[in-house]
Structures are given as C-alpha cells and as structure tokens.
Design a protein around this nucleic acid. Structure first.
Lengths: 356, 356
DNA sequence: TTGAAAGCGCTACCAA
DNA sequence: TTGGTAGCGCTTTCAA
C-alpha cells in the first residue's frame, strides 16, 4: 500500500532508465553517474516521495536487513535492556528488528522462530527457556541463519552449534555463596523460578551448591516458584524462613523475585537483613531504590545486547564466527545482606535486638 | 539465505506446476486440489523443507504482514505491557512486529517511522513524545498506512488524522487532585518528567491544576526532572519538600518517578505518608511491592496494546475506521498517601530557606 | 556514463 | 482440477 511510486516512475519522471536510478541510489562510490543526471533523479525522488520497496529489493539481493529477536518477557528489566542494546546496534548498522516475546512458553518460542524463518530474517538473537530442548535452534542452523543465544548456558545442544553471549552463571552462584559464607551464614536456601524455564537458574544453583559443599556446608534447600504469579509465600513457608530452623540467607534467582520475597518477609515482620539476608541476580535499577537496597549480582545487560548484535552481524559479513563470549558480572552492594543472625533466633515473641 | 528451495523446486519434486503448489498452500477453501496431488505436494514440501519467501509473496500481494511498533522505552513496565498486548494480538492474527524504541528522541522517532515505511509495514502502532511535532505522522498518513497512537493525547495534529487508544489523562490529574483534597491536603506539588517528552504528562498537569483551582486552592508548584537520570534530589530541594513551607503531597507523573522520589525522601528521613504523601501514575506491578506501597492511578496497559492492535487490523480490513478509544483508569490504593500532615512537620529540623 | 533486459519467488488470471 | 504465464519492484550483468 505504502507509496505506490516505483523506481520506474522515478526513471520516467527524470527521463532516465531504471538502471540509472538504481545505480545512483545504491551508488557504492563506484556506479557513479553524472552529476547532472544525479540531480534530475534526486529531484524526481523528492517530487514523487519515492521509497524503494523492501520486498523488491530483498527478492533480488536475498537479504531483508531484518534481525529476529526472541525474548521470554519484557517485564524483567534485564530483557528490556538487552532489547535496547540490540536495537541500538542494529539500527546503527541499518538493520531492523523483528521482535517476539515468548512468555516462557516453548510453543511460542518455536512459533517465533518459525516466523523469523518465514520472514527470512538475516540473523537471529534469542533467549530460550532451554536450548537443549528447543527444536527451533536446529531449524535456524539448517537454514544457515546466523544466530546467537543471549543469557543461555552452554551445553551439548549449543556447543559448536551457536555462539552465546552470557555470563558465567555457575560462577555467579559461587560468588553468591562466597559472599554469604564470608558473612558467617551457614544455613542458606535458594528460591528460583521454575528451573525448566531457565537454564541460567539451573547453572546458578549448581554453582551455589558446589561452593557450599566445597566449604563443608550442607546443601541448601531449594524452592521453585511460579515465575509469573511469584507465589513466594508458600515458598517461605516450606523453607521455614523466619523460624529457628530456617535459613539465615536467601538466594533468589533474580531481582524481581528477590523484591517479591522481601515484600513477603516484611509482611511477616521478618527483618532483612537482621533475621534473614536476601540477595538477587541481575542488578536491575529498581533494586537500589528499595528499602533496604537490594544486594545483587549485576549483569551488563545492555552491553550483552550490543555484543550479540555485533556478533551476528559479523557472522553475516562472513567474518570469523566469533565463539561464545562470557562477560563479567559484578557484586552490587546492598543493605539486604548482612552478617548471619547470631544463634538462638527468637522462638516466638521477640523484641530482640541483633547483636554481633 | 534461508532455505533456498523455491516453489519451483517443490513443483518439480511433486511433478506438478507451481500454480498448483501455490493454490494448495494458500488454499482458502476454494482453490482446491485433488487429495492425491495434495499429498504429493505436501510430501515434497516436507522433504525439501520448503518455506515460502515472504519477499516474493509481498511483492505480489502488496502486503508484508508486518506491523511497526514504536515506543519510547522499554524500561518503563507500562510500555513493556503495551508491547506484550500488541505482540499477543498480532501473533494471533498472523502478523509480526517490527519494533523500535526511540528513547524519547525525536530524531529516532522519525527514523523509526521511516524504517517502517521503507519496510512497507501494513500498519503502525506508536507512542511519540509529541504528536503535534512529529513529522513522521504525516508521512504515515500520506502513505496511507493504518496507524494508531497509544497513550498520546488528542490534539489538533491527531484529530481526524489518526485514532488513539489512551486514557483521559486530564481526568487522571483531576482524580489525583480529588483524592488528595479529600485527605485534607492544601499544599501540593507535581514532579514530572520533561513535559516536552510527554504530552500525557502535560494533560495530567492541566487536570491537576484545574481541579485545584476549582477547589479554591492555589496552583501547585511544578518541577520537571530528567526522565532518564531522574535527578529528583534537586527537585525536592526546589519544592522545599519536608520543610514547613513545603507541600504535604507530591503528585508524580509516573510510578517510576514516584519510586525514585520515595527513595530520596527516605534518605532525607521525610516520612511517607506521615510528612508527605506520594502518588504516581501507571499502576506498575512493582509499586505494590514497595514499602510503603505506592498509591497510583492504574492504566490498563496490556489491554491498550491489544486494543491498538485490533484497531489497526480492522482498519486494514477496511472496516469502519474506529475512532479514538478512551479506556478507564482506576485508583490503586497504597500506603504512600495519607491525611495531610497536621501543621508544623516535626521531622528534620529544616534549615531550608523559606521561599515564595 | 547509460540503457535493455533477465530474472529473484510468488500469486492470480485465464485456458485447457 | 490443473498448467502456462504475466508481472509485482528491484538489482545487475552486458552492450552500447
């Protein structure tokens, strides 16, 4: 529908051939035309409001200048930032984003990838729930579409199949453990979104558990909660949080979850970090606006988006297919973690002051 | 690049003509083919992994099945929800989203719209900083691309030009005023992102001011802050917040801002709502996880996204171009607002210089 | 420096 | 029910 003037109209209007118009408009410095003709053509383009048809061009050049981006959700600021990073880089390079959010639904993931394929995207950037179970990845590979996984963890399915841009999530788990251990915590628990929906959560858990084991501590109790409705109350119940037998520190698999957990703790009058320390992962901006401020492991989300875009684009140019990129994570101080509560957690009624 | 098998290959493989293949694949119930042939063709499609080229098809049908969506930022959950709503509806109808975020930059806005036009999107869904200054809107109209504005306010530039899906932002401002007045507040202030970047903020302000005037109260002091870095500290200073001469209630133009304001108030030991009440707009989920919980005017963001998608799609089908849709907003209770502080705020011994 | 013409993959019209 | 075929708008040889 859009501007139905074609290159033919422009040629006619300018009194030249379509070939000349095309050459001028795509002029890569070489296919020069006389300045005289150029002026006429430009005038015609202007007068007619000509806009080259992407379809016609794609058909001939075999490229759409579209990049597909698939993310689980935009509710988590981390993904919003990834998107911003990709958007920025892609735009600069003259690419446009075909975007889909999967809501952590494997079917929608596949659907999204199919759509990318149907639309002949030149490249794809994805975060999937589980790379080793995602049939779409194979389709992408079969179609030879340069692709990159963001946030996902390396595993048999991805190795040698698709590069990744992520952080070392096992190390993230270890760093959390290290931090808490240094503060004297001995009884810890982890609360995570469904592991089936997040291979990175699984990696964090593994690192967390291993670090505890290596420190001679018992395995942490682990509790899964629904990502969406974040029913944390029952999770806290099942972990005995706030009671004498409960953990003194809670590792939440992401900041949004951590914030929900802190809310529920507040409702129960469990003090943070007095009674229980809380730490999240992601380093979302809003964490530092909470009270207490949320301690977290930060990921360079926006940069990951930019890196991912750069990576697929260089693949597209046939440059050496850069391998997996592990970006550095960092510890974000926050008031939500503190020293382990000293012994005898108040059995029942207690106006006790935390003494070190 | 993607799967270079064409309809021709399929036809050959199945021993039929391309016309037959096309007819079968687009079979709208009418262009039937014999089941026998159908089987052969399907087998060929399967065997070859055939995937129709969107470019070839678009060229012929003059439609891309792409919808452009332009939003200012994904950091604000409200936009993330709009996106989710649009995404959902579009997918169901077989459309794909070409997405761009403008970062509240007018140049990027125009750039994004140009991109939509270049890619011949079938329709566009946008939130712009200022409809009356956005040249892109005219381009869209000239190209006859069905479009809809989300969140933006009606004005001379949009009226009769483009339908809107939004809430009555002036009424939002009025409702906030009404609420605060009912609680006995007499001295109020508004903190907003740059008005130039948000026509809805301007509308909210107008409603707020008018309602105060009608109630015989003085005009509120109004302070603009940078949307991005949200430097609220100086805003609070200039409003004398926390001092005897300062306002007892703060109307923030959106929840993210309100949360940043509450953080700064906490830092200054100004009690919310004891000394100052705070109310935002948007009703983002995280507001209810804060302490105190954030009072807000909620907008049905996701529904707005769905409505917007439905609206452009119906325009596309040539159905009566539905006019502007005003959705209902609602008051979200929150602990951040309370009765006006009684006289002399006792808190911080204010060394602030009394102003005008 | 310019133009003519051959398709890119597809749909739809018209014949058979 | 099927097939032949004419383009859709564009880029790109190949000649002039």
């Amino acid at each position: 529908m859009a501007g139905s003037t074609t290159i033919k109209d422009v040629a006619q209007h300018a009194g030249v051939s379509v070939a000349t118009v095309s050459r001028l408009l795509n002029g890569k410095g070489k296919g020069r035309v006389s300045t005289e003709v150029a002026a006429k053509v430009h005038a015609a383009v202007e007068a007619l409001g000509y806009r080259p048809s992407a379809a016609g061009r794609s058909l001939k050049t075999r490229q759409t200048r579209n990049i597909g981006i698939l993310i689980p959700s935009l509710s988590n600021p981390v993904f919003a930032e990834i998107f911003a990073g990709v958007n920025d880089h892609a735009r600069r390079e003259g690419y446009t984003l075909l975007a889909t959010v999967s809501e952590y639904d494997r079917e929608l993931e596949l659907d999204g990838i199919q759509t990318f394929l149907n639309h002949q995207v030149d490249a794809a950037i994805l975060t999937v729930t589980n790379p080793s179970q995602c049939e779409g990845l194979a389709l992408l590979k079969a179609a030879k579409v340069p692709s990159v996984l963001v946030f996902n963890q390396e595993n048999d399915a991805t190795r040698d199949a698709m590069p990744l841009v992520t952080v070392d999530n096992e190390q993230v788990g270890r760093d959390v453990a290290k931090k808490l251990i240094a503060l004297g915590h001995k009884s810890m628990a982890m609360i995570a979104g469904h592991f089936s929906a997040s291979d990175r959560s699984r990696a964090r858990r593994m690192g967390f558990e291993r670090a505890l084991t290596e420190a001679g501590l018992p395995n942490p109790r682990v509790c899964e909660v629904d990502f969406v409705s974040a029913e944390v109350a029952s999770a806290l119940d099942s972990l005995n949080v706030g009671s004498a037998t409960g953990p003194t520190a809670l590792f939440c698999s992401n900041d949004l979850l951590a914030i929900a957990v802190m809310k529920e703790l507040r409702r129960r009058s469990v003090r943070v970090p007095g009674d229980v320390s809380v730490i999240g992962v992601d380093g979302i901006a809003i964490g530092s606006l909470m009270s207490p401020t949320l301690a977290s492991i930060t990921q360079p989300s926006r940069e990951m988006g930019e890196k991912a875009a750069a990576l697929v684009l260089s693949q597209l140019k046939g440059e050496a297919c850069a391998a997996t990129q592990l970006l550095a994570h960092d510890y974000q101080e926050g008031e939500s973690v503190g020293p382990a509560a000293t012994k005898s957690p108040p059995s029942s009624s207690d106006p006790l002051q935390p003494k070190a």
